Structures are given as structure tokens and as C-alpha cells.
Simulated assay, not measured.
Amino acid sequence: MTLPDETTPRIAILGAGAVGSLVAARLVQSGLAPSLVARGARLEQLRAKGLWLRENGAEPIHLPVRAASASEAGAQDIVFLALKAHAIEPALPDIARLVTPTTFVVPLINGVPWWYFQGDGARTVRAVDPHGALARFFAPSRLVGAVLFLTASLDDDGAVLASGPERIVMGTVSTATDTDPSATLAPLRSALGATSLAVRFVDEVRRDLWSKIALNLATNPLSVVAQATLAEQFNDPALVPTVTAVLRETIALARRLGVEPRYDLDEMLAIGRAAGPFRTSMAQDHARGAPLELDAIARSVLELAETHELPMPTARTVTEICSFLDGRSDTARDPV
């Protein structure tokens, strides 16, 4: 699979939330002209005000970006899916307008991705692909796994707020023995290598994925239950034991699946301690009454644990409490 013989690849980011907007900003800063694909009020906001970026408390800067609908953007060479995992299946009609048989698709999602077992039989992860629609739609050969280590949020005025280090790890999804990861990723490496996106390409992306899955599961549900920032979760004596227990449980599950996470327990704890007073994406969603990503971040992991008969008591308890709180939010969102 190669990109068309063009000087500048056609790149679209589907989803103009915090992550999608930050990726778009970095590409624009690197001299590329991506399409930031959005819908509804967010699309109108971007068209009226443009894309604004605030970094580490500095004055905001305006970045010229093409805000477009999927039909306006059209076929692309690289598509970043910056959507919540549960929003991908409903977005398939829009995705179909952007993707061709040669398009690289890079999902920027939390938790266990639907593609985890693609290339290794027809097994799906029900929590994130209950109907198998994503497994049928996306061929493993055109998927690039991505693991995000960054902190971003949207301000009330729609500006993206960026703080702390940023890193994206990418690798091939297919586990076919005849796949050459270096050759498969070469066109993407060429397109993104000169950008300000801090991208690292690896041969075994699932190792990095499990490090992020563990950190997400240990912090996102607990951030809602305890109303705690990352700094509090990794430094407060009342919360550190819970975080540590969930990390241990998730590392054990990864090993049961034959994967050694890129970071060990001590390294994960060190990453968390350095995160600062940041609210997780799940805490941000809960604060504004939005649905929580429990299926991708928590229930998918627990599904795999059940399949492999591995108890995860701490993760399960925190998830169930978080689910209860999310249910109360559902009631508030949809009053009788």
C-alpha cells in the first residue's frame, strides 16, 4: 500500500474534539493543510472562529485550518479517526466518504480497540464492536494502530488547550506473518516524519497499547468516582493503592494475552506522578453530563479478563461505581 505520487498527502482528521483539534493544529504548524472534519455546532464554530490553540498557559494563537464536512473533504490519503470509540460505528457513512482502498486509517481512540484481534482470526471485542460492523468495514491492511500519550482539552470557547509532553506511537495492526511492518509504515513515516507531531513508529504497537490501556483503566473511572485529578490519583495516599492495584491487574491480563507492556509498574507510576493536575477525559465528560467511555476504557478490558478467567476485582469495583454514577447522569440528561 502506497500513497499517491503527490508532494503533499491529503490528510483529514475526523472529529474536532480536543485530540482531533490538537492533531490538526500540529499538522498546520508543520506546513500541511489538513481538513478538520466536524459536524453541527462544532463545524459552524470552526468556520466562524477558526482553530485556536493555547499551550501551557500562553496566549492563544490562531491557526488556519480547513473546517469541512465529510462530503466536502472527500477522499483522503491519511485519515485520523479522532472519535470516541462508541461514535465510530454511527460515523461509518462519513468515514466511507473519506476512505479509499489505499487510505491509511489511524484510529486515535482510548481503551481496547476493535481491531485488537484483526489479523488473528475473526474474533471481535464486543464491548467496542457489538455488531462486528467495524471489523467488517476496516481491512487490517489499511489500519495503523496508534497510542496517544498527551493531555488536551477544549476550552469553553472551543480553543484546544495543550499542556505537557505529547507523543503518539504508531504500528501496524495486522499480525499476518507475511506483513513487513517497516515497509507498510514507510509511506506514513514519510508523510508525518517532518511534522511537529511527536510520532514514534514501532514493530509491536500492542506493547505500547497495553501500557496506555492500564493507565487509562487505572485513572479514568477513578477520576469520576473520586473527583480527582491525575496528580491526586498518583500522589494522594488514599488513592495510590487503588491506582496501583488496577495497574497490576491490567499488566497481568496483558501477560495472559502474551504481551509484555512497554512500561513496567514503576514506570507507569512515574508517568502518572509527572502528569500534573489534569482532569482525565472521562472526568471532563462527566462534568459536562456527556456519556462516559466505559465500554472502551473499562468494559472491554473486563470482557477480555472474563474470557481468560482472570479476576480483576479492583478494576471491576471502580468501574461498577463509575457506571452507577454515569447512570445517574443519564437520568439527569433524559428526565421523565
Rank of each mutant, 00 (worst) to 15 (best):
L53R: 10
M282D: 04
P187S: 05
A270W: 00
D77V: 13
V147G: 02
L230S: 09
W114P: 00
A41M: 05
R47N: 09
P107Y: 15
F149Y: 15
E303A: 07
P101M: 09
P277C: 09
R262T: 15
D180W: 04
D334Q: 14
Y116F: 15
R316W: 12
R206M: 12
S153V: 02
R66W: 06
D208L: 01
S323P: 03
P277Q: 09
V19Q: 06
A162W: 02
G111M: 01
V318R: 12
Q284M: 14
F278M: 13
A24E: 08
F234K: 01
T317F: 11
A252T: 11
D266W: 05
A152V: 13
A254F: 07
E89W: 10
D208V: 01
L304A: 01
T280W: 02
G111I: 04
V99Y: 12
Q233D: 02
I321C: 13
G272R: 00
S163L: 13
L154A: 07
I13E: 07
L247T: 03
P181R: 15
E260D: 11
G40N: 05
E166A: 07
F104H: 01
V23R: 07
R47W: 14
P187Q: 08
I321N: 09
R256P: 00
T172P: 01
E44D: 15
A58E: 15
M282Q: 06
R200N: 14
A152F: 11
G119P: 03
P277S: 03
D208Y: 04
V246A: 07
G50M: 12
L310C: 08
E89S: 09
R206W: 14
T195M: 15
G20E: 13
R126E: 13
A274E: 01
D178P: 11
P221E: 13
V259K: 10
A176I: 05
R248N: 10
G272K: 02
T242C: 06
D330W: 11
R136P: 03
F104E: 00
R26F: 11
S35D: 13
P101D: 08
S190A: 15
R279Q: 14
L143S: 03
A48W: 04
A214S: 14
R200W: 05
P311W: 13
V169W: 09
D77C: 08
V19P: 02
A194D: 15
S35I: 01
G74H: 05
F138R: 02
E306I: 09
E309G: 13
L150I: 07
L143T: 00
I297L: 08
A82V: 06
V318T: 13
L253C: 02
E72H: 02
A270Y: 00
M312C: 12
V23I: 14
A305I: 04
L32H: 10
A152H: 10
F201V: 12
R333I: 00
R167N: 15
V202C: 11
D5I: 10
M268E: 08
G171W: 00
A75I: 03
Q118F: 07
S35G: 09
H131S: 12
I95V: 15
H62W: 10
P64R: 12
P140F: 06
D77S: 12
V205A: 07
F137Q: 08
G50L: 11
R142S: 04
E260S: 08
L134R: 03
A87H: 07
R279C: 10
A162R: 07
A75W: 06
S35C: 14
L197W: 04
L81F: 03
A133Y: 01
R255V: 14
T229C: 06
S21L: 02
